[in-house]
């Protein structure tokens, strides 16, 4: 039943022309950035070669690209999460799900997974772009995969938060703005806590992504992302259940 809802969510994303437009624009922007980084790397490559333990193509091109994608995701995910529940409520289609033999848990997980599958496409697009470098050089696959994994976890955390905010309102636009504000706020806590030991940094998903970005698989970061997702998914489930209680 979760997959029925996820499948429907995934398909209806592709039914909207705006989705295709956004996907195309994003790929264009990422490719632009990728080529710019690659160009810069090729120019300094000769000097780099004289250094001992010089940064390779993965570290100089792929890691910054994934860092940028992570930042863009912060603005992008709310655009997609806003529709999830708020639009169903506005169009009064939520009744179909509420009256059907599916639980709130299944509705929330279905929507979450459907969106995540879609966002996976964007991540996979970037990954493929970087993998194209394998034709000319040796890639650090470990660093590349840790980056992709980190980006996936970060996106999942953003999607969970956006999904919860979408469940609070009947207006998709409000859901988008509120989710953007929340994500931006989390990002600001990281930026404003300058020293790396500051406890506030631990709150921001972006700071946990940083270790993935460096190629560190830290169990603390894993647990942070998992707890972040679970907490907001539980809140969304609770909100949908309250929908049956308060109308």
């Amino acid at each position: 039943m979760i997959f029925t809802i996820a499948h429907k969510e995934f398909r209806s994303l592709f039914a909207a022309p705006s989705t295709w437009l956004i996907l195309g624009m994003l790929q264009f922007i990422f490719a632009w950035f990728f080529l710019a980084r690659l160009d810069a790397f090729l120019q300094v490559q000769a000097q780099l070669a004289q250094l001992a333990n010089a940064p390779g193509a993965t570290q100089a091109v792929a890691a910054p690209l994934f860092g940028t994608v992570a930042l863009v995701m912060m603005m992008l995910v709310p655009v997609f999460t806003m529709r999830l529940i708020a639009e169903e409520r506005r169009n009064q289609t939520l009744t179909l799900l509420m009256a059907a033999p599916v639980s709130s848990v299944q509705i929330v997980l279905g929507k979450f997974l459907g969106l995540l599958l879609f966002l996976l496409f964007i991540i996979a697009g970037c990954l493929l772009m970087v993998l194209a470098l394998a034709a000319g050089t040796q890639l650090d696959m470990g660093l590349l995969l840790s980056n992709a994994l980190g980006l996936l976890l970060l996106t999942a955390a953003y999607a969970a938060l956006g999904l919860y905010i979408s469940s609070l309102t009947a207006q998709p636009v409000i859901a988008a703005i509120a989710a953007l504000a929340a994500l931006f706020g989390l990002w600001l806590t990281e930026i404003s806590a300058v020293d790396s030991g500051n406890a506030w940094r631990a709150l921001a998903p972006t700071s946990h992504f940083e270790s993935f970005n460096l190629g560190l698989l830290n169990s603390g970061d894993w647990i942070f992302f998992l707890l972040f997702c679970i907490a907001f998914l539980l809140l969304a489930i609770r909100r949908l259940h309250n929908n049956r209680i308060y109308g």
């Binding site: 209806s12 039914a15 169009n91 009064q92 289609t93 939520l94 009744t95 179909l96 009256a99």
Partner: peptide, 10 residues
């Protein structure tokens, strides 16, 4: 329901 729960894009 009073308003048919239709997904207009499907």
């Amino acid at each position: 329901p009073e308003t048919p729960p239709l997904y207009r894009e499907m």
